[in-house]
Design a protein around this nucleic acid. Structure first.
Lengths: 208, 208
DNA sequence: GAAACTGTTGATCGAGTGATCAATTAGCTC
DNA sequence: GAGCTAATTGATCACTCGATCAACAGTTTC
């Protein structure tokens, strides 16, 4: 059994490392996020995540008994972390209009494309994975709330005059998603989408 | 072997029917479209399509040797047929503004939701299926051309004043996709998206 | 009516999946 | 340092998938 014919003959018999459940679980969740961002949510399998971390597939199954839930949780982690970044981008700004512009600008940042890919995949896989669909709805609600709050502040400050902040927030969110999904497939030929987009949004908000 | 323990004991040994290649191929393509619209592009497998049509899986493989291409072709058929319907909705109208409104209205019709589901899935699966990705890009180009022509006509007629019809067409297409994808997950709580949307689009176009 | 052509069947292969679990062993406790 | 707990391993099962192909059987041709 020593130095058996494994794909890596020179590799040691894998020195078994024993960690605390909390630490190991966190490692597994992080590895899943890496896999999802690099190869898509569909690439999250017991064996793929195990290989990413260099452990046995059974260990991943031990901490994530149901792969469907594992996929949903991984999406939720990625989406929440991404949203936290966007929120941080507007944290220091006190002017409502500036905050909205910061949110929109970072939302359409090309560095967020891997996250958009995960979103698009989650929309599709959500048809088969109820836990994932629920996570998607939850995260969409959080985004809508984020936008709604900024719009509401803008209205209070007299910058906007939208009669229905909640509805407009959904509208803006839909635009963000659509433009990002489009950029995923075609980022060429559409230069500087942000300017037109910002204009359209502020018109929706009844900017003064 | 007669009346073996198949899932349907009362079913005959399946009376073999022999059809012309063209007719059979068309049947298979239609069956795939039905499966895709009902259960998603991911449900297109040799066995699933064969079952839909009541034939052997080998027959489907005979006419569609590569499933990846089969999926791409099915998407292309669905998307093209859907776009043809939208085009027909504006065929009789000669006024550019009316035609744009007709396009947008039918684009956001809730009856198109199954098609939107196919689109979203195609975006996600396109990462793994190059033929599908190519079909998606091709279809997006066709949509953009459709919108661009309407906008161009509007500009010629003096209704719009957008400086860059092509860019605005991409923008509008992104909005359509985003709102439809959103409606796929959340069609509740967002009443009457069309009114705000139309207003935003016409502002983008510099409507007079 | 026989024979040739070819549309069609259904089994089969290898690969990949989620799930399960007895066996192993690392690291803590005393 | 011995014992023990439980973290970890790796094999295994049943399943689905795309792909392949020898065998079967309608349909046409002569």
């Amino acid at each position: 059994m020593s130095t058996k014919n494994s794909p890596e003959p020179s590799a040691r018999p894998a020195p078994r490392v024993r960690k605390s459940p909390a630490e190991r679980h966190a490692e597994i969740q992080d590895a899943a996020a890496v896999v999802a961002l690099e190869e898509g949510l569909a690439a999250i399998t017991l064996r793929r995540v195990a290989r990413q971390l260099g452990v046995a597939s059974g260990l991943v199954a031990h901490y994530e008994p149901r792969v469907e839930d594992f996929v949903a949780a991984t999406f939720a982690r990625i989406a929440a972390a991404d949203r936290a970044e966007v929120e941080q981008a507007m944290a220091g700004l006190d002017d409502a209009a500036l905050r909205l512009r910061a949110v929109l600008a970072s939302s359409l940042d090309s560095e967020r494309l891997p996250v958009t890919a995960v979103w698009v995949e989650a929309w599709g896989l959500g048809r088969r994975n109820e836990a994932l669909a629920a996570a998607v709805r939850e995260e969409m609600d959080a985004w809508q709330e984020l936008l709604r709050n900024v719009i509401r502040d803008g209205i209070r400050a007299g910058v906007y005059s939208a009669p229905d902040p909640a509805a407009v927030a959904w509208q803006v969110l839909g635009m963000i998603d659509g433009l990002n999904a489009q950029a995923l497939v075609r980022w060429e030929g559409v230069p500087d989408r942000r300017e037109h987009f910002l204009s359209a949004v502020e018109h929706l908000l009844g900017a003064t």
